[in-house]
Nucleic acid binder design. Structure first.
Length: 331
DNA sequence: GAGGGGAGCGCG
DNA sequence: AAAGCGCGCTCCCCTC
């Protein structure tokens, strides 16, 4: 069966080519060419042209009123999609370096959207796993597959991670099956097992859908709204899309609220105490700083604390910090 | 030559 | 890819 684009053309999307690559040589070469040309045309060729003549740096523009959920967006250049997932891509990230005497410090919230889901749902099992400081994907795998924490294998953890991410996006069993390359029934079994173990999450999903249908909008913990005009659409696909947004927006949006609060409190600290710190980038759940190398440990501790204190949920916020001469090393 | 839309793909 | 949320950029094709 040849997969089609919405306009009816045969699709050559990555996922399709990946599948075809099992049987043929050509799709593999096409994919390799595409990934390399993406890196070259978007980053390697372009970023050097965007260096400011006066400062010798690239300066992005952040936009506050673009993303529906309250995230920032970044343009000219977009510094929120610098490669990290492949070895080749990371070489681009390595080009982002600190000036002499400074290092880069990257501080990112750990599992912030899942923590927000735990808080919003008040699900006992999920809140407990975070309070105990467990590896949440491992904990989910243990529950869903009925194993002890120590008996969870890499494959079970991988599946649990896909389930956890899928939930944040309002994914169905169909989507999970596709993601994990398993049958629909098996995927449905996983979803059922999940909701049996985390009933609070199921109640949260039902509640938010119902609330959105009644009010026509959803809110973050801090009260920023997203209106959903299609939440009661007669067209089932449109309505379901709005329902997925209703589920996702409070989590993605609350995470955006929290990091903005953190940025304000870090800014106030910098203004008042004049530490050897510059806040230079935001990437959704991560802040990047230039820090005087002699003060790294102390500055890293303070920043970590300020970010953790940006919101008080039913469970702790955790921030991972790393440092290095370049942005890749800092991770 | 400018502008728009689709396809594809980089990130969280 | 209809079926998983939110973005921006490049390339290509098309229209005006």
């Amino acid at each position: 069966m040849i997969k089609k684009t919405p306009k009816g053309q045969p699709s050559t999307a990555e996922e399709v080519l990946q599948e075809l690559a099992n049987d043929y040589e050509l799709p593999r070469l096409v994919l390799e060419f595409r990934s390399l040309s993406k890196l070259k045309s978007t980053y390697t060729d372009k970023l050097p042209l965007q260096i400011d003549k006066d400062t010798g740096r690239v300066h992005t523009s952040y936009h506050q009123a673009v993303a529906a959920t309250g995230r920032l967006s970044s343009t000219s250049p977009n510094l929120q999609n610098i490669p990290i997932r492949t070895e080749e891509g990371r070489r681009i990230r390595q080009a982002f370096i600190a000036p002499q005497g400074s290092v880069l410090l990257a501080a990112d919230y750990s599992q912030i959207e899942l923590r927000i889901m735990a808080h919003l749902s008040q699900d006992e099992g999920l809140v407990g796993a975070f309070q105990r400081g467990e590896d949440v994907h491992r904990a989910t795998a243990a529950e869903v597959f009925g194993l002890a924490l120590d008996d969870v294998g890499t494959e079970e953890r991988r599946a649990a991670k896909a389930i956890n991410f899928g939930l944040i996006y309002g994914m169905s069993a169909f989507g999970l099956a596709k993601q994990l390359n398993i049958g629909r029934n098996e995927a449905q079994d996983y979803v059922n097992a999940y909701f049996e173990k985390y009933p609070g999450v199921l109640e949260f999903m039902d509640r938010i859908r119902k609330q959105a249908a009644e009010d026509g909008y959803v809110e973050t913990i801090f009260g920023r709204r997203l209106y959903l005009p299609e939440i009661n659409a007669r067209n089932g696909m449109r309505r379901q899309a709005a329902e997925r947004t209703a589920i996702n927006a409070p989590m993605q949006g609350t995470a955006a609220d929290i990091i903005k609060r953190a940025m304000i409190s870090v800014h106030e600290w910098i203004e008042s105490k004049q530490p050897p710190v510059k806040m230079i980038m935001q990437v959704h759940d991560e802040l990047v700083f230039e820090v005087g190398e002699k003060a790294v440990d102390e500055m890293s501790q303070t920043i970590n604390q300020l970010m953790c204190d940006a919101a008080e949920l039913s469970l702790p916020l955790v921030v991972d910090t790393g440092t290095g001469k370049n942005w890749d090393e800092a991770h």
